[in-house]
Simulated assay, not measured.
Amino acid sequence: MTGARMPAVVAADLRKSYGELKAVDGVSFTVAEGEFFGILGPNGAGKTTTLEIVEGLRKPDDGSVTLLGESPWPRNPALLPRIGVQLQASSFFEKLTAREQLRTFGSLYGVGPAKADEMLELVGLTDKADVQENKLSGGQRQRLSIACALVHDPDLVFLDEPTAALDPQARRNLWDVLREIQARGKTIVYTTHYLDEAEILCDRVAIMDKGRILAMDAPATLVRGLDAPTRVILQSGALDVVDAEGIEGVDEVQQDEVSLTITTRRPAPVLSDLADRGALDGLQVRTATLEDVFLNLTGREYRA
C-alpha cells in the first residue's frame, strides 16, 4: 500500500479445501484504494478460487475478507452497487445488441439508459452498439463484458483473466481500457497468465502457487530482488570471443552462428568498453523480467 490510501480489500488467512486439495492455503493480502493489483500463478495455483472468495461468490473454510470496509459473505446487498465483477466465462442475454446488453445490466442497478453509450465509448465499441453480442469478435465480447461490470460505476473492479484468448492487438487495446479505468480512480484486482502485461499494468502483484502466495510486491522490486545477470547480445562477428572474455565485468561468453552473448552482473563497464570498440550496432540488452521471477518461484514444469 502506498501513501495514506485506505484499504479497498483486506484478505486475511483465507483457506478453501476440496477433499485433500488445498485450493487456497492461508492467503493474505491488502489492496489500497486506486491500486491495480494482480494475482499471478500457473494453472491450478488457486487464483480464481481466491478471487471468488474475495468477491463474495464463494464461502471460505476459514479466514476473513472485507471489501470497502464491509464483509462480502454472506451475500451483502449493500456492497453490490460498489463492486463490479467480470468472470472468466461471461454470460450475456440472448439476441440483444451491445447497447441493449449494457442497458439491461445497468437497469439492474437503477442506472439510466444513457450510461450505456458512455461505456461503449470507454471500451471502444461505439461502432458496434447495434450489433448482437454473438456476432462480436472475441476481443469485442471481452470489452463488452468489462463494460457490463463497470456500467454501474463501481469503486472496486474484479477481472478474472480479462485478456485470455485475445490476439496481441486486442490485448493491447484492452490494456488502454484498463489504464483508463484506473485513471478514473477505480481499484482493480485481476488475474492473468500474461506476465508482460502484469509487469506493465500492475502497481503490485502476488505470485501464487499451490494455494499460497510465494511473493508479493511491485513488479520492479521483485525483479531487482531476483539479482539475475544481464545478457548483452551482439551480432556474430562484431567481436571476437577472446576479446569479449577480456572485458572488465564479463562473467561468461557464448557464441553461436548468429550471435555472441555476454553474461554480466556489471553491465555499465561492459557497455562502455563495447562503445569504445564501436561494437554497438545491432546490440541487444536483456535484463530480468517478471517472468523470470515467476519461473524462479513456481518452476518450469508443464502445468495441465
Rank of each mutant, 00 (worst) to 15 (best):
M1F: 04
G3T: 11
G3P: 02
A4V: 01
A4W: 06
M6T: 15
P7W: 14
V9W: 09
V9S: 09
D13L: 02
S17M: 07
L21N: 10
V27R: 13
F29T: 06
F29K: 07
E33T: 13
E35D: 04
G38C: 08
L40W: 12
G41H: 08
T49A: 02
T50G: 05
L51E: 02
I53T: 06
K59C: 08
D61L: 09
L67A: 02
E70H: 05
S71R: 14
P72V: 06
W73I: 12
R75A: 07
A78P: 02
R82V: 00
I83L: 04
V85G: 01
V85R: 02
Q86E: 08
L87P: 02
Q88N: 00
S91F: 01
F92S: 01
F92Y: 14
R99W: 03
G110R: 14
G110I: 11
V111A: 07
V111R: 15
E118N: 08
V123H: 11
D127W: 13
D127Y: 13
D127H: 15
K128D: 05
A129M: 09
D130R: 14
D130E: 15
N134G: 00
N134F: 00
N134V: 01
L136C: 03
S137V: 09
Q140N: 05
L144P: 04
P154K: 10
L159V: 07
P162R: 13
T163Q: 08
A164M: 01
L166I: 11
D167N: 07
P168T: 12
R171E: 07
R172N: 11
N173A: 05
L174P: 01
R179G: 00
R179F: 07
R179Q: 11
A183W: 05
G185N: 10
T191E: 01
T192I: 10
Y194P: 00
L201A: 01
R204W: 05
A206S: 03
A206T: 03
A206N: 04
M208G: 03
K210I: 00
G211C: 08
I213E: 03
M216R: 08
D217T: 06
V223Q: 08
V223F: 08
A228H: 12
P229H: 05
T230A: 07
R231Y: 09
V232N: 09
Q235N: 07
S236V: 10
S236G: 04
S236R: 15
A238G: 03
A238Q: 12
D243A: 14
E245M: 14
G246C: 05
G246V: 00
E248C: 04
E252C: 04
E252T: 12
Q254L: 15
D256E: 12
D256K: 14
L260H: 09
T263W: 12
T264Q: 09
T264I: 08
R266A: 09
P267E: 12
P269N: 11
S272Q: 15
D276I: 04
D276V: 09
R277L: 13
G278Q: 10
G278A: 04
A279V: 03
L280M: 15
L283E: 10
Q284N: 11
Q284F: 08
Q284L: 12
T289S: 15
T289N: 10
T289R: 15
L290T: 09
E291I: 09
N296L: 05
N296Q: 13
G299Q: 10
R300I: 06
Y302R: 14
